[in-house]
Design a binder for these strands. Sequence first.
DNA 1: CTGAAAGCGCTTACAG
DNA 2: CTGAAAGCGCTTACAG
Lengths: 326, 326
Amino acid sequence: MKYSIKEISELAHVAPSTVSKALNGQRGVSEEKRAEIIKIAGEHNYIPNASARALSHKSAEAIGLIIPAGKNRSLLGSYWSEIIAAIAEEVSSRGYSLLLFVLDSEKRLEGLKEMVLRQNVDGLIIPAEEITLDAYNLLIDLKIPFVLQGRSKVCNHYSVDVQNMSGAAALTRSLLRQGCKKCACVAGPEEYLYSRERVEGFRTVMADSGIGNAPVLYSLYSEQKALLDIRNFFEKNRDVDGVFITAGGEFAFYVLRVLKELGFDMSSFGVSVFDDFEPLHFLPFPVTSAKQPVRLMGTQTAKNLFQLLSGEEPPSLSLFDITLVQ
Amino acid sequence: MKYSIKEISELAHVAPSTVSKALNGQRGVSEEKRAEIIKIAGEHNYIPNASARALSHKSAEAIGLIIPAGKNRSLLGSYWSEIIAAIAEEVSSRGYSLLLFVLDSEKRLEGLKEMVLRQNVDGLIIPAEEITLDAYNLLIDLKIPFVLQGRSKVCNHYSVDVQNMSGAAALTRSLLRQGCKKCACVAGPEEYLYSRERVEGFRTVMADSGIGNAPVLYSLYSEQKALLDIRNFFEKNRDVDGVFITAGGEFAFYVLRVLKELGFDMSSFGVSVFDDFEPLHFLPFPVTSAKQPVRLMGTQTAKNLFQLLSGEEPPSLSLFDITLVQ
DNA sequence: CTGAAAGCGCTTACAG
DNA sequence: CTGAAAGCGCTTACAG
């Protein structure tokens, strides 16, 4: 059975307010009574009602995390699965809880807006690529604190991100160093800032080394669409001998699957991937990848949000470097 | 700015209770007023306070999902990342939200207990391998509805699980069919029922084919410990020519890494893994894996929990079959 | 130190 | 149809 504070107060022969103070470690209760109350509450498995607490506190002690996944975008092997773990850890270490909102590819932030907002959260963590101007304005209007995971081109707001351009440049240089003559780039959705930045890093290095217009493909993360696009792309670019893939996880494997199917000789093919993923290094050919300090980044995001909640001003941008993994 | 129902009611020149009825689609409001109220609420981005709502409803419209991950157990490529997505989808399609609790390897359910319980959730989804008798009794005492993901040996309760024994048997038979003469089994923690069941499936098939005591290793999922155990195991079992791994994701790759390091000739080595994981099929040698219908299982778990919440009696056990993937 | 009272923002009988 | 009132379970000034 579930007890309320009133019932506990009766069992302890004190007022509810005294129980509240005792259990919350506030002063104004004799140590004698406090001990007694704690004992009784423990014996009855008393657990304060979080909603009531939130209502009077005017704080739910909860933060909301939005992640892009759902039917067409797997969480598997992705950046987001590690982000979740990192943020969950930081959030729960502060006694807060974590509301998770998973975005379907169709129902973008729009559909979830109401849902997210009607759940009481003190703040939100939002993937930069998902925020829209409308959503941004709404959050600002409602004064709901939030931080972005990544940077957005839609709005300028507190962000935590990785050095996309220099990371992509390093990966591209690695392809050249391996002797690739004709490199291509397969990127995620063009509408995402990080896709574009990584492509730009690729292009810059290619241009610097005198290669005018290396082939670039922007695609989507949905398996079906990606496989189709990638196949078309490589059928038109049979002479490519190296590829820079701007996104890891399953997407990188889609590219590799197509290359294999089209009969490319992978033993003399350069592959570099933005985002590290252990299975990449078990392949029968070498892969260079960029490891983002994802855990640190997730933790930083949560920390920045908590700073915001406490009224302090967090850094407007926390930028992290990648590490090359061979 | 954030408006309360009282403020909206003043703007609309009606009583708060009328606003409530209008916005919640209840009868007892003229359609005229209802339209007017909805209009005003919309214009002011009115969003009802979830805590207040939960407090009077006596339902938070939220369910809690506990997952085992954290520092030493990655979410990457795991069963749990898909479970999260499936459950999130089902939960949000019902207008509920999802509280996520990530368990560190040290602080098992115990530490989280208070945390989980003081957040208002209508029900919980708990990994079978994490539940303890104490936690079980507490939940029963507090009448908090919950379902288990997997079966537990600690308690008999509503569960959703995969056919562990027959799946393991199929994978083992596949090794034999490939011509393996000396098969070993590398399993996850012995304390987990599914580890034991899968080992049992392995042993049964081995025994049936006249092989007395095939080597079996139980280890942990933490990278460090696993690598150590696995190395020791195979150093002592140099003559093994096939392995059945009871868990997919990164754990399977630990095994493969060690085999590679120890110089086993993988081209003539049989590998079968319980749990499918796309990267497994890009390896330079064939791997047989068992694909669990993880999405369906997650959805079923959520559905069973909602049945429980609505006062119905869900199946005490929903069992799913694996599919062999070559 | 102790407790009665008001308030947090909703919802839901209940009366008019 | 409409609204005043009580209640959900806490917390927090405020008196005593």
